[in-house]
Simulated scan of single mutants.
Amino acid sequence: MTGRFLKENESLFVPETELFSEEWILYHRAMKSGYSTLYYPGIQVIHKCSASIKKDNEDLTERMIAMNKKMIKSRKVYIDYLMNSSEE
């Protein structure tokens, strides 16, 4: 992400997604604004999968249910975003 992209976008994240599917929305916004993507193999991102969900749900089944509910909700937000952005 460049400084220009940050300045052009008041908020980067959509709170309703709770950070699920957020990268798809960021990618779409960047492409729509004329940015390109760059793959740099030297960058490493460490992602603690489900770290926040594990805090709230110790039981594996409950954790999977909670995670999938959040994923479904975020996909709906993403679909709404795509449908609304195609109208612009």
Rank of each mutant, 00 (worst) to 15 (best):
M1Q: 09
T2S: 09
G3M: 08
R4A: 08
F5G: 00
L6Q: 10
K7W: 07
E8Y: 04
E8C: 08
N9T: 03
E10S: 12
E10Q: 14
E10H: 12
S11G: 12
S11R: 09
L12G: 04
F13I: 15
F13D: 15
F13W: 14
V14M: 05
V14H: 04
E16I: 05
E18W: 02
F20Y: 13
S21R: 05
S21Q: 09
S21C: 11
E23I: 09
E23D: 15
E23H: 09
W24V: 06
L26Y: 01
L26W: 02
L26K: 00
Y27H: 11
H28V: 10
H28G: 05
R29G: 00
A30T: 00
A30S: 04
M31A: 13
K32S: 14
S33D: 11
G34M: 08
G34E: 10
G34Q: 08
G34C: 07
Y35L: 01
Y35G: 00
Y35T: 01
S36I: 12
S36R: 15
S36P: 06
L38V: 08
Y39C: 03
Y40G: 02
Y40E: 10
P41I: 02
P41Y: 02
G42P: 02
I43S: 02
Q44A: 07
V45W: 04
V45R: 04
I46C: 07
H47D: 12
H47F: 12
K48H: 13
C49W: 13
A51T: 08
A51Y: 07
S52L: 09
S52H: 14
K54S: 03
K55V: 15
K55D: 15
D56P: 01
D56L: 10
D56Y: 06
N57M: 04
D59C: 02
L60R: 12
L60I: 14
T61M: 13
T61A: 13
E62I: 00
R63F: 00
M64G: 04
I65K: 04
N68E: 08
N68I: 03
N68R: 08
K69M: 04
K69W: 01
K69L: 06
K70L: 09
K70Y: 05
M71E: 02
M71V: 10
M71Y: 06
M71A: 07
I72T: 15
I72N: 13
S74T: 04
R75A: 09
K76L: 06
K76V: 03
K76I: 03
V77D: 00
V77F: 01
Y81R: 00
Y81Q: 00
L82H: 06
L82K: 05
L82D: 07
L82I: 09
M83A: 15
M83P: 05
M83K: 15
N84V: 09
S85L: 07
S85H: 07
S86W: 11
E87R: 14
E87M: 14
